[in-house]
Structures are given as structure tokens and as C-alpha cells.
Amino acid sequence: MIKVVVSVDKDGGYKGIEFSGHALFADSGKDIVCAAVSILAINTLNSIEVFCKDEFDAYDEPKKGYLKAEFKSKLSDKADLLMKSLMLGLDGISQEYGKKFITILRQEV
């Protein structure tokens, strides 16, 4: 199962996001749930870096299905919109395929 932990501040602003695990929806190379989550996550972080210039630290271990991003400051409006778009996509995957394959947790830090 993919576990997504979204860290927010008391006002709901994004502080970071962490992905861990594999969906195990299908065999490696054919797992559309894992692929969808990976594409959304990587594209969002790349977009924030390139288009928004917001700074973050990122850590990854692809074979373990691990990716973490910690934002260094309050996100710009553009980066915030990209994160909301990411969450919309992740929530859609969760609704379509179920919590057996992806769980999303929101925590205040």
C-alpha cells in the first residue's frame, strides 16, 4: 500500500509531503496505481521547482517507493495551487481504487 502523509500548518498551509510504499495493485511494471501516484508526485515537485521557484528539500529512495519533500517556507500561491491539484489527483486515485492501495493522512505540524 502507498501511504501519503501531508503535513500542514495550523492554517492549512502545506509544509511537506511524504510518500512511502508500493500499491501492489499489479506486478511491477504494470501497476497503474503506483505509476499514477509517482507521476503526480514527481510532476508536482518538478513544477513547483521550475515554475514557482519555491524551495524545498527532497529525499527519495525509488526502489523502496519513498519520496519526501519539506518546504522551506510558506508556499507561493502558484505552488499552493499545484499542491491542491496534487491532492485532488491523489484523492481521486484513492476513491477509484480504494484504501487497500493508497492511504492519505493529513497531519498538522
Rank of each mutant, 00 (worst) to 15 (best):
Y59H: 11
V5R: 10
Y97H: 02
V37T: 08
E70L: 10
I104D: 06
L86K: 00
V4K: 05
V6Q: 08
K53W: 08
S7L: 14
L24T: 09
E70F: 01
G29W: 13
A23I: 03
A41N: 05
R106D: 04
I39F: 06
K15N: 09
A69Q: 00
P62M: 13
T103F: 04
T44V: 07
F25Y: 15
D60Q: 15
D9C: 11
G92Q: 14
I42E: 01
C52P: 01
G89F: 02
I39P: 03
V109F: 06
S94Y: 03
E55Y: 09
F51N: 14
V4I: 15
K100Q: 09
K84T: 08
K15V: 05
L67S: 00
V109Y: 04
G29C: 09
I42G: 02
E49T: 06
Y14K: 02
Q95P: 00
N43W: 04
A58D: 06
A69N: 07
N46E: 09
A26G: 12
K74N: 12
S85A: 15
L67G: 00
I2M: 02
F56G: 05
H22S: 07
A35F: 06
I17W: 03
M87G: 04
D60K: 13
G29P: 05
D77F: 09
G98I: 03
Y66T: 05
Q107T: 14
D54Q: 08
K74R: 14
G92T: 15
K72Q: 09
V8S: 07
D54C: 08
Q107I: 14
Q95I: 04
A41V: 13
K3H: 11
A79R: 07
G92E: 08
G89P: 01
S85K: 02
K64E: 15
Y97A: 00
K72N: 12
K64L: 11
V33C: 01
V50I: 11
N43Y: 04
G16E: 10
A41R: 01
G92C: 08
A36Q: 13
L40Y: 03
A69F: 09
L105H: 12
N43D: 13
D57I: 06
I48C: 00
L75M: 09
H22P: 02
L24S: 13
G98S: 04
T44R: 03
C34Q: 04
G29A: 11
K64W: 07
I39R: 04
V33I: 02
K15P: 00
K72I: 03
S47R: 04
K63L: 13
F56H: 08
I2G: 00
K30R: 12
K84Y: 11
S28E: 12
I93Y: 01
G13K: 11
C34F: 03
L88K: 04
I93T: 03
G12K: 05
Y66L: 14
V6K: 11
Q107A: 12
M1S: 14
I48W: 01
S94F: 00
F19H: 06
E49L: 07
G21E: 08
G13S: 14
K10V: 11
